[in-house]
Design a protein around this nucleic acid. Structure first.
Length: 455
RNA sequence: GUGGCUGUAGCUCAGUUGGUUAGAGCAUCAGAUUGUGGUUCUGAGGGUCGCCGGUUCGAACCCGGUUAGCCACCCCA
């Protein structure tokens, strides 16, 4: 027997971690529900053609493919061998693999909407929290299996959706006590910038480069722009654009003078102003900040784009999203626009850990541990425990008679708040010693009082 | 896919220019302690030094290969 191990880039989540993650995910789900979003789950695997070609050339390589069953069946062997040649040549072949693990939540959602658009009520607002898989090489903060947590509204071009999504970000992070900056920009403004710099075909090059700004700095961005074929004058325009500073209104005024003439640019500015000018749904704890340098790597965004950064920590973005024009066109159902956001659960976890913001009670499951101090004693304890459970107090009885030391240690390790001790003397008196394990404070309660004790 | 670093006890890691029987801390178990924990003290168990080969009188240590993990790049969450 070889040592058991995990596949590269995957993780087990122990009890403590599951509890903490559930705290994050439950908070997010509750807010989604509060805003009228409905849950959706899709299978772990999709047909390979549903996924292929949707994530670019790089993305295709990172899709986890599933080998077909029954390849060794004599009647399939020749086909399988021929298929393998195809695969070696870098192509896919259905005779070898026709299914794959899902790569993100957006494409399966698009597939679902395309399949069910006749039945759905639009605008359709869905949220989805599920694992996805990537055949990437893992590194810090990057895994081969990880959770995505998405909410999208499809079938509506109304900017009220953007306002609502910003509100969701604000509400979630206010609840989790993480101060954040919700950054907002608009792809149409970036499109206008591209127009000024030699045409819209440069749009992707420009966004990919300036998306890296906060990571690599202005000089490297300029270098990358040159590498991507922009001339000095164009790099100069972009540099000036990236240096625009001030309040939201100041920034908007500034770009109005630059891009006001461009219809696309004017539209983008108008959209930004609409979102910012809408009666605020924000808690007041977080700010909505126009960040003209925000670009987002994904090039299917066409309107508003979002990104959320936690204040006071160096960790990168903990959420992002934006508007796209045509979600389901790839699946033969054109004309369904949408806007969505995503939460980075793993990074939010790291932020909460770093800022020590996980509430104490997240840690514990069992509230009361009944000590086992003998046969007759434990039977009485068992009865009392059942009464407490009937009142929804989670509790357990130590599994065997043991020294106090052991039972205390067990309680400690499971972060149990109270120990209920019934020994021979207590059994005789009809009492129970209830000890608060954090404070050491101990009370004597009659059996009848225990059930109503506020744990 | 490309590059760098690391594999020694359950965990975190020492291990001298290659030299007797490979160590520590934490954890576990037992005792000090037969009714009150997180402290302390004593003791015990626990190892294919990732794996295969080579050099050598002798390898955890040097060399080659292999495998796994981590980190960075590309890309992304």
């Amino acid at each position: 027997m070889s040592k058991p191990s995990l596949p590269q880039g995957t993780r087990d989540f122990g009890p403590d971690i599951v509890r903490k993650r559930a705290y994050i995910i439950d908070s997010i789900k509750k807010v989604f529900e509060l805003y009228g979003f409905e849950p959706l789950e899709t299978p772990a695997m999709e047909n390979l053609d549903t996924l292929m070609g949707k994530y670019g050339e790089e993305g295709d390589k990172l899709i986890f493919k599933i080998l077909n069953n029954g390849l060794s069946d004599p009647k399939n062997i020749d086909k399988a061998k021929a298929a393998f040649e195809n695969v070696l040549a870098g192509k896919n072949d259905k005779n070898l693999t026709e299914r794959a693990l899902k790569y993100d939540l957006t494409i399966p959602f698009a597939r679902y909407v395309a399949m069910n658009h006749g039945q759905l009520t639009f605008p359709f607002k869905r949220y989805q929290v599920q694992p996805v898989w990537r055949a990437d090489r893992p590194q810090k903060g990057r895994y081969r299996e990880f959770y995505q947590c998405d909410a999208d509204v499809v079938g509506s071009t109304s900017l009220i959706n953007e306002v609502e999504l910003a509100g969701i970000y604000d509400k979630v992070f206010a609840q989790l006590n993480i101060p954040v900056e919700i950054k907002l920009n608009n792809r149409k403004i970036l499109a206008a910038l591209a127009e000024c710099c030699g045409g819209s075909e440069k749009m992707t090059d420009i966004t990919v480069a300036i998306d890296k700004l906060d990571k690599i700095g202005i000089e490297k961005v300029q270098e990358e722009l040159r590498q991507r074929g922009l001339n000095e004058q164009q790099v100069d325009i972009i540099t000036q654009y990236l240096k625009i500073e001030g309040t939201n209104t100041e920034k908007l005024d500034r770009i109005k003078t630059i891009f006001g003439a461009s219809t696309t640019g004017a539209k983008g500015i108008e959209e930004l102003e609409y979102i910012l000018g809408y009666p605020s749904s924000l808690s007041g704890k977080n700010e909505l900040v126009v960040d003209l340098t925000l670009a987002r790597g994904l090039n299917y965004y066409t309107g508003a784009i979002f990104e959320v950064k936690a204040k006071h920590v160096t960790i990168g973005s903990i959420g992002g999203g934006g508007r796209y024009d045509d979600l389901t066109g790839l699946f033969g159902v054109p004309g369904i626009p949408g806007v969505g956001i995503s939460f980075g659960v793993d990074r939010i976890y790291d932020v909460l850990e770093e800022l020590k913001l996980f509430p104490e009670q997240v840690q514990s499951g069992t509230k009361v541990l009944f000590f086992n101090l003998g046969d007759a004693e434990s039977k009485k304890a068992f009865e009392l425990m059942q009464q407490l459970r009937a009142k929804s107090v989670s509790c357990e009885l130590y599994h065997e008679q043991a020294k106090f030391d052991k039972q205390f240690k067990y309680a400690d390790r499971k972060h149990i708040a109270y120990a209920a001790m019934i020994g021979s003397r207590e059994l005789e008196n009809g009492t129970c010693n209830v000890r608060n394990l954090a404070t050491g404070e101990q009370k004597v309660l009659f059996f009848s009082e225990l059930v109503d004790h506020p744990f």
